[in-house]
Measured scan of single mutants.
Amino acid sequence: MVQKSRNGGVYPGPSGEKKLKVGFVGLDPGAPDSTRDGALLIAGSEAPKRGSILSKPRAGGAGAGKPPKRNAFYRKLQNFLYNVLERPRGWAFIYHAYVFLLVFSCLVLSVFSTIKEYEKSSEGALYILEIVTIVVFGVEYFVRIWAAGCCCRYRGWRGRLKFARKPFCVIDIMVLIASIAVLAAGSQGNVFATSALRSLRFLQILRMIRMDRRGGTWKLLGSVVYAHSKELVTAWYIGFLCLILASFLVYLAEKGENDHFDTYADALWWGLITLTTIGYGDKYPQTWNGRLLAATFTLIGVSFFALPAGILGSGFALKVQEQHRQKHFEKRRNPAAGLIQSAWRFYATNLSRTDLHSTWQYYERTVTVPMYSSQTQTYGASRLIPPLNQLELLRNLKSKSGLAFRKDPPPEPSPSKGSPCRGPLCGCCPGRSSQKVSLKDRVFSSPRGVAAKGKGSPQAQTVRRSPSADQSLEDSPSKVPKSWSFGDRSRARQAFRIKGAASRQNSEEASL
């Protein structure tokens, strides 16, 4: 019999049943779409005989028809080659250093092939080196495509196609095609072959870009420019304004007297070369007005044109410092986490200390709560409330009815002989401070409620009492009544008793 458990639990079988086999339907690529829901599959020993999904071999995947050992070796080799080519560490840098020397040698020989004295001697060596480079780069490109299958997102032919569309893979295939075209054109020995050789060798310069396949330098440059984009835009904007204004004023001053400034384009060329401190010297002002304007705008514009270099330099320094700090933080993070875990385990398992309490023990206690009866409008029989619902239920009951529930009420002091009981919340009678006064009792026990209740009776009109401690106690149990005489010590004692009862009640409510 096959059962599914969608909550991750395992159904224990009877003692008479045989052992169960467990598997996940959602992990089987050969299962139909209706059953690939991630549910837990529990099947008996007879299920494989019936041809269940556990008995079927995997229909898809890279190692579907391969033995386990061969499949493990296949995956291990794939991961190894992918890490060597895409994430070089340790001795893997030897291969990348060899590729760099190969590319650099091709670049140097290409430069010498353009010089007439070394053209014949360098062409033969360059031809052999180009063949070696094409073979190495071609094999490396196909190995990269194959090894990318170790990543989940690059599996299958669609994943390989996605990997081949990456920018550096596109550069690799462009350089490979250009190198093959250069060799094919150079072997023909005609004029067209020579011109094609010179034009296609430009694409071989892109080999130097592939040295940084992970794009660390470009990411660093982009992060620095993005972090200081506002400062760079401000400096370039002001420098551009200085360039336009200086070129226009010098053009007006030199026009008609200097042949170097016949057009405004000549003035812009002079301004750009001057403000960037290049100074070719092919154009320069000759009149005193033009020289004065050139000197003034040079002092202003050079500072703004040189400002981005300082901004980028400081940004690079701060970014490198931040990377070093992050690297040290990552080195200290795992030991710190292990130290915290060890300290907590020692703290939680220390049996010699009796003052340690688990944080979840508070929620494991069961509280007896009286249940409210809507018919009699009273609190009758009580029941046990689950631990997770205790706090919310108690808050709702307290807010609606005004009752305070507590588990172990402390012993109440008995009323003394000299001070009789003053009210239901005086704190001297046991069992009276455990409940709050309802809204109805407060209204009818207050002086205003009594006056409103007995407004029509003649006794209420004739008998008038001065405010005393009895009425103030019933009005607000948490307030201290004001004494009408300064020498009345009994009223002071009563006030301290009320304060103590109120503080105890607040602490009990907070504990609930």
Rank of each mutant, 00 (worst) to 15 (best):
M1T: 02
M1K: 06
M1V: 01
G8S: 03
G9D: 00
S55C: 03
A62V: 06
N79K: 00
L81P: 08
L85R: 09
H96N: 02
H96P: 02
L101H: 09
F104S: 00
L107F: 04
S113F: 07
T114A: 00
T114I: 08
E119G: 04
S122L: 02
Y127C: 09
E130K: 11
R144G: 13
R144Q: 01
A147P: 08
Y154D: 00
G159R: 05
G159E: 07
G159V: 05
K162R: 01
C169F: 00
D172G: 06
V175L: 00
A178V: 03
V182M: 03
A185G: 05
A185T: 03
Q188K: 02
G189V: 02
N190H: 06
N190S: 02
A193D: 05
A193V: 05
T194I: 06
S195C: 12
S195P: 02
A196V: 02
L197P: 04
R198Q: 05
S199R: 08
L200P: 02
R201H: 02
L203P: 03
Q204H: 03
Q204R: 09
I205V: 08
L206R: 14
L206P: 12
R207Q: 13
R207W: 09
M208V: 00
I209T: 08
R210C: 08
R210H: 06
R210P: 09
M211R: 10
M211V: 03
D212A: 14
D212G: 01
D212E: 05
D212V: 13
R213Q: 07
R213W: 07
R214W: 09
R214P: 09
R214Q: 04
G215R: 13
G215E: 13
T217P: 05
T217N: 12
T217I: 09
K219N: 09
L221R: 11
G222D: 12
S223P: 15
V225D: 14
V225I: 01
V225F: 05
H228Q: 05
H228Y: 03
K230Q: 03
K230M: 07
E231G: 13
E231Q: 10
E231D: 13
T234P: 02
A235V: 15
Y237C: 11
I238L: 00
G239R: 09
C242G: 10
L243V: 05
L243F: 07
S247W: 13
S247P: 07
S247L: 12
F248S: 02
L249P: 13
V250L: 08
V250G: 10
V250A: 11
A253T: 07
A253S: 03
E254D: 12
K255R: 01
G256R: 14
N258S: 11
N258Y: 11
D259Y: 07
D259N: 04
D259G: 04
H260P: 10
H260Y: 03
F261C: 00
F261I: 01
T263I: 02
T263A: 10
Y264N: 15
A265P: 09
A265T: 11
A265V: 10
D266E: 11
D266G: 10
A267T: 12
L268P: 11
L268F: 00
W269L: 12
W269C: 15
G271R: 15
G271V: 08
I273M: 10
I273N: 12
T274M: 12
T276N: 06
T276I: 08
T277S: 05
I278T: 12
I278N: 15
I278F: 14
G279D: 15
G279C: 15
Y280C: 11
Y280H: 13
G281W: 12
G281R: 15
G281E: 14
D282N: 15
D282V: 15
K283R: 00
K283E: 04
Y284C: 06
Y284D: 12
P285H: 14
P285L: 11
P285S: 14
T287N: 10
G290D: 14
G290V: 15
G290S: 14
R291S: 11
L292P: 13
L293P: 10
A294G: 06
A294V: 04
T296P: 11
G301S: 10
G301D: 13
F304S: 12
F304C: 13
F305L: 15
A306P: 01
A306T: 04
A306V: 11
L307P: 04
A309V: 01
I311N: 04
L312S: 03
G313E: 01
S314P: 04
G315R: 07
A317T: 07
L318V: 07
K319R: 14
V320I: 01
E322G: 10
R325G: 10
H328N: 15
F329S: 10
K331T: 12
R332G: 13
R333W: 07
R333Q: 00
P335S: 14
P335L: 15
P335A: 06
A337T: 13
A337G: 09
A337V: 04
L339R: 08
L339Q: 08
I340T: 12
I340M: 07
Q341R: 14
Q341H: 14
S342L: 09
A343S: 02
W344R: 06
T349I: 08
N350I: 05
N350K: 00
N350H: 05
L351F: 04
L351V: 07
S352P: 00
R353G: 09
R353H: 06
D355E: 03
D355V: 08
L356R: 06
L356V: 04
S358F: 04
T359K: 14
T359A: 08
W360C: 11
Y362C: 05
T378I: 01
P386S: 01
L388F: 03
P411L: 06
G418V: 01
P420L: 01
P430S: 06
